[in-house]
Computed example of a mutant assay.
Amino acid sequence: MQGMYVLIIKRFAGHSKWANIRHIKAQKDVERSRIFTKLGTQMKVAIQEGGSSDPINNIKLAHVVEQAKRVNMPVATIQNIIKSTQKDKDQSKTYLIGVKGPGKSIILCEAFTSSLPSLKIQMATILKKNNGKFLDGNFSHLFIQKGVIDIEITSSGGTHEEILENATDDALECEADDVEIVEETNCLRFLCDPNHLDKVQKSLATKGYKIRSASIEYLPQKLVELTDSEIDQCSILLEKLENMENIVKVYDNIC
Score class of each variant (00 low, 15 high):
4 M>F: 08
5 Y>P: 00
6 V>L: 06
7 L>M: 05
7 L>N: 09
12 F>K: 10
14 G>L: 01
15 H>F: 12
16 S>Y: 15
16 S>M: 14
17 K>T: 12
19 A>G: 10
19 A>M: 14
28 K>S: 11
28 K>N: 12
33 S>E: 12
33 S>Y: 10
39 L>D: 08
39 L>Q: 10
40 G>K: 02
42 Q>M: 13
43 M>Q: 00
44 K>C: 05
44 K>I: 03
45 V>S: 02
46 A>Q: 01
46 A>S: 14
49 E>Y: 04
52 S>G: 02
53 S>G: 00
56 I>S: 12
57 N>V: 02
61 L>W: 03
66 E>T: 12
66 E>C: 05
67 Q>K: 14
68 A>Y: 05
68 A>C: 06
69 K>F: 03
70 R>I: 04
81 I>M: 04
83 K>R: 14
86 Q>R: 15
87 K>W: 07
88 D>E: 01
88 D>G: 02
93 K>S: 07
94 T>A: 06
97 I>W: 00
101 G>A: 13
107 I>Y: 03
109 C>D: 00
110 E>N: 01
110 E>L: 06
112 F>N: 04
119 L>D: 01
119 L>W: 00
121 I>F: 15
122 Q>S: 13
125 T>E: 12
125 T>S: 14
126 I>S: 05
126 I>W: 02
130 N>R: 15
131 N>Q: 15
132 G>F: 06
136 D>H: 06
138 N>D: 15
140 S>T: 15
140 S>G: 00
141 H>S: 14
144 I>V: 15
147 G>M: 02
148 V>N: 08
150 D>Y: 07
156 S>W: 11
156 S>Y: 11
157 G>S: 13
159 T>D: 04
160 H>Q: 15
161 E>V: 12
161 E>C: 05
161 E>T: 15
161 E>Y: 10
165 E>W: 10
167 A>Y: 00
170 D>T: 13
170 D>G: 07
172 L>R: 15
180 E>Q: 12
180 E>M: 12
181 I>V: 13
184 E>R: 14
187 C>V: 15
189 R>S: 08
194 P>E: 09
197 L>S: 04
197 L>E: 01
204 L>T: 05
204 L>V: 03
206 T>I: 10
211 I>T: 05
216 I>L: 03
216 I>F: 07
217 E>L: 07
219 L>E: 11
220 P>Q: 07
220 P>Y: 01
225 E>W: 06
225 E>S: 14
227 T>A: 09
229 S>R: 13
229 S>G: 12
229 S>H: 14
233 Q>Y: 06
235 S>D: 14
235 S>K: 08
236 I>G: 06
236 I>K: 13
239 E>D: 14
243 N>H: 13
243 N>W: 05
246 N>K: 14
246 N>F: 12
247 I>D: 04
254 I>F: 03
